[in-house]
Amino acid sequence: SAVVMEEGSPGEVPVLVEPPGLEDVEAALGMDRRTDAYSRSSSVSSQEEKSLHAEELVGRGIPIERVVSSEGGRPSVDLSFQPSQPLSKSSSSPELQTLQDILGDPGDKADVGRLSPEVKARSQSGTLDGESAAWSASGEDSRGQPEGPLPSSSPRSPSGLRPRGYTISDSAPSRRGKRVERDALKSRATASNAEKVPGINPSFVFLQLYHSPFFGDESNKPILLPNESQSFERSVQLLDQIPSYDTHKIAVLYVGEGQSNSELAILSNEHGSYRYTEFLTGLGRLIELKDCQPDKVYLGGLDVCGEDGQFTYCWHDDIMQAVFHIATLMPTKDVDKHRCDKKRHLGNDFVSIVYNDSGEDFKLGTIKGQFNFVHVIVTPLDYECNLVSLQCRKDMEGLVDTSVAKIVSDRNLPFVARQMALHANMASQVHHSRSNPTDIYPSKWIARLRHIKRLRQRICEEAAYSNPSLPLVHPPSHSKAPAQTPAEPTPGYEVGQRKRLISSVEDFTEFV
């Protein structure tokens, strides 16, 4: 048969007729292969192709491409040299491709048809291009793949890379869960390890502090508590009631339409708007009261037996805890006409967050109470924005700035309102402590230090009264110190430094 060459192609190359033996071998191979691939376009007849790359030819070592076609129900084999250009295909004639002069020997084609199974398996396991790669995943090629499931790999992101949580363990979102698992493993320790309690022994800490320079003076030496005195035992138990972190309780009120001037209507609300609910979820963490331990979680007086509701929101960081007394989460009882059960919590909070959804101005004093010092007013606006402002009593104007209003988005509203309420509550605590000038409020841990110092002074006084020969370590507060001759004046800087060093040991009130 003659071949018409394309323009620009090399000279004529004689194409030899395939021997009958080659056709029989390739026909047997075509019957084993699956003929249901995917359909081509209507211009080209339905056909199945599979590209198999052999590394070497037997005796020649030339890479070839073998295409199996099922045109007219008769499979045909096409061998081509890759750099050459194939002729145009037609549905009426068999596929013809040019070969190099080196394939002119018909014996070479017979060798190609009689490829060993080793070469076929190696060509099938190679990388296939384009559409033949999808075909190689079918059941027909499963014989050339190794048996057994593939090893499982770690989760992959859409980009093909490992997620960040699997790369950096410290930033993994499941870090707290692993800590819980470690605690569970520790709890399952053997009885021999049960006595080993991690941490620092208080006796060891005391020993280090006792021999430090801070205890060089007799006034700073630790003293032993009497065991037989019940009054001192009660004082030590009272110390446990003062937490070592700051605590805040903040009221949250929802004002519906037409309720801006009605205290009873505001306290009777059992739910609010959708934006109000989203605002609550951002204030803190939802907790169930019956599962809380009052000595570990500050509840601000809420009952854990269901008297004040089942849930509330709280927030904490390293040095403070805040609980929100939310009116809509507290039960509304029919027998309580004046809502006294709610007001006994909300009316005693220094700061209230008022979500004013009424469309009218909310005035300070609508919720009557002796300790309502500051109101954080949240007014929802259009386009997911809110107006946040402050209202306070006249005696609080020096501590709280009420002249600045803020426009905040719904997303950042819980954070801004919480921070403003916490700052206002700190100012309210300082303002409330002014009624007792001898006990200015600095912080909870300073209050613990003052309680310890008062307890020490009482013990020293009782020891001096029981044994008059012992001198008083600290003179009583009601006694007057003996007159001392004025010492020589020293520079102001040295006096300030000495006073600062003494105050650092005794108390921190002056620095606050």
Results as ranks from 00 to 15, higher is better:
331 P>G: 05
442 P>C: 06
272 G>D: 02
495 V>K: 15
312 T>F: 05
422 L>T: 03
422 L>M: 06
274 Y>G: 08
255 V>I: 07
375 H>M: 15
254 Y>G: 01
483 A>V: 08
442 P>N: 07
374 V>W: 02
319 I>K: 03
334 D>K: 15
471 P>M: 08
253 L>H: 03
476 P>L: 13
290 K>T: 13
509 T>H: 10
341 D>C: 13
222 P>C: 09
283 L>Y: 00
500 R>L: 09
357 D>R: 00
381 L>G: 03
487 A>S: 11
420 M>E: 04
371 F>E: 09
247 T>L: 12
378 V>C: 10
479 S>Q: 11
332 T>K: 13
491 P>R: 11
387 L>N: 04
491 P>Y: 09
395 D>Y: 05
260 S>Y: 04
382 D>F: 02
368 K>Y: 06
234 R>I: 06
419 Q>P: 01
380 P>K: 00
412 N>I: 02
468 P>C: 11
493 Y>K: 15
333 K>S: 13
226 P>A: 15
284 G>L: 05
236 V>Y: 08
373 F>K: 13
434 R>Y: 08
401 D>Y: 04
491 P>G: 12
230 Q>W: 07
285 R>P: 05
345 H>C: 08
273 S>A: 02
317 D>Q: 03
402 T>Q: 09
278 E>Y: 04
317 D>M: 01
268 S>Y: 03
405 A>Y: 11
348 N>T: 15
377 I>R: 01
335 V>N: 13
254 Y>I: 00
455 L>N: 11
499 K>P: 12
329 L>Y: 04
352 S>G: 03
258 G>P: 02
306 G>N: 12
478 H>Y: 09
302 L>P: 12
510 E>I: 05
272 G>R: 03
464 A>V: 10
311 F>K: 07
359 G>V: 02
259 Q>A: 03
366 T>F: 04
387 L>E: 06
306 G>V: 09
337 K>R: 10
479 S>D: 14
338 H>I: 07
417 A>G: 01
238 L>T: 07
316 H>M: 10
241 Q>G: 07
461 E>F: 10
265 A>W: 01
487 A>N: 11
381 L>K: 03
500 R>P: 14
435 S>K: 11
305 C>N: 13
430 V>S: 04
259 Q>N: 02
435 S>G: 09
429 Q>I: 12
350 F>A: 03
229 S>I: 08
232 F>M: 11
473 V>N: 15
500 R>G: 13
416 V>F: 07
335 V>Q: 11
224 L>K: 06
270 E>S: 08
295 D>W: 05
428 S>V: 15
354 V>L: 03
399 L>H: 10
404 V>G: 14
463 A>N: 13
223 I>C: 08
224 L>H: 10
296 K>A: 06
311 F>T: 05
376 V>G: 00
309 G>D: 08
414 P>C: 03
498 R>L: 07
310 Q>W: 09
267 L>D: 03
256 G>W: 01
253 L>E: 01
405 A>N: 07
261 N>K: 10
416 V>Y: 05
333 K>Y: 15
498 R>Q: 13
496 G>F: 06
411 R>L: 07
418 R>N: 02
281 T>D: 11
287 I>H: 08
455 L>F: 10
310 Q>Y: 15
426 M>S: 01
480 K>L: 12
311 F>S: 05
455 L>P: 07
292 C>P: 12
455 L>G: 10
331 P>N: 06
389 S>D: 05
245 Y>R: 14
330 M>Y: 05
390 L>F: 08
333 K>E: 10
223 I>K: 06
309 G>I: 10
367 I>G: 04
396 M>W: 03
290 K>S: 10
437 P>C: 05
287 I>C: 13
430 V>E: 03
316 H>V: 15
237 Q>K: 08
479 S>N: 14
501 L>A: 15
255 V>Q: 01
268 S>A: 14
395 D>N: 10
380 P>A: 02
307 E>K: 15
397 E>Y: 08
382 D>C: 04
245 Y>H: 06
337 K>W: 10
278 E>S: 08
418 R>T: 10
320 M>D: 15
420 M>L: 05
